[in-house]
Design a protein around this nucleic acid. Structure first.
Ligand code: FES
Ligand code: FES
Lengths: 156, 156
DNA sequence: TCTATTTAAGACTTATTTGTCTTTAATATA
DNA sequence: TATATTAAAGACAAATAAGTCTTAAATAGA
């Protein structure tokens, strides 16, 4: 599996927040996110705490509280979410699991893997939440098992 | 993590066997592989059983027994080992974990991920055990924490 | 035939990830 | 000030992955 479940849920929630962004909302309650995306509320809460700890989201307690992206979706790249939750092992470690991946201590797959993992990194590094949210709205793509982004935005 | 530990160990063992191939050896005892690569003997045994079940290796019981690649290393591609142990989820499933990845039910990341995962697949699909074994010998690359392929071959 | 060697099979344990539940702290509003 | 609402924190449980151990079956060689 490329990404952990926690990371996947964190990305889905971030995309949801990006889609919400221009809906004149301030803070969105986590319960609303978890219900919309059909995720465990408590599990998602813990994941979002990692994102707020990483400075990607802000949270506010009490009535009218919830979470919000700390920057405009255009300025948040997917790789920030991935590394905040899964770390950067995917982009730095040996594909054969040997310690200290690098030119100096290479395994037989090093050159090919270094090239391929850079392609993966570029994918996450060059994709913003805004790009995916607007594409998702325009083409009516889905963010949960059956519901599209338009469905989700309407339903709240 | 891109590949499971079981898959990684299976690849390391397969590369070891490819390096052994022209050493006039018939069957190599699993104990020799696990000792050389510093892997758990019993855990490796279970992994190798998956590879023999998939037809990639042959095994023989008793004295002079052990395991052997069932085809010349040139004809065994890495992707066969990966899919035998980890399945093809990495090459078929949605990066956001949604069921039924495909054009018809796309998520916002689908196009980019479909492209990237194909690059990963091509890497495994176009790399043979022979290529890695000969490169590893030629450039004296490592297959375990500290030991290079030459070290390993000499040590048996 | 007997013994030592080796893989096969499966029960079992440990570690990690995933998911649930309860309590606490902060805050808006009445 | 009292109450309802919300995130934070952390204990707890379940599921999965990783690793260990024991016994059985096959086979070479004495
Ligand atoms: S050393 Fe193995 S991928 Fe770099
Ligand atoms: S539907 Fe998400 S990657 Fe294909």
């Amino acid at each position: 599996m490329l990404l952990s479940k926690a990371c996947i849920y964190g990305m889905r929630a971030s995309l949801f927040m990006a889609a919400m962004h221009k809906q004149n909302r301030q803070f969105v309650p986590i319960r609303e996110v978890s219900d919309s995306l059909d995720l465990s509320f408590h599990f998602l809460t813990k994941i979002l705490q990692q994102l707020t700890a990483a400075g990607l989201m802000e949270s506010y307690k009490g009535p009218k509280g919830g979470i919000a992206l700390s920057r405009p979706p255009k300025e948040i790249m997917l790789i920030e979410i991935v590394t905040a939750i899964d770390g950067d092992a995917l982009f730095t470690e040996c594909v054969l699991g040997l310690p200290g991946c690098g030119h100096k201590k290479a395994c037989p797959l090093h050159d090919k893997w270094a090239y391929t993992r850079e392609a993966i990194q570029i994918m996450f590094n060059s994709t913003s939440l805004e790009e995916l949210a607007s594409k998702g709205k325009r083409m009516n793509l889905r963010l949960s098992d059956e519901l599209t982004m338009e469905d989700l935005i309407k339903s709240v």
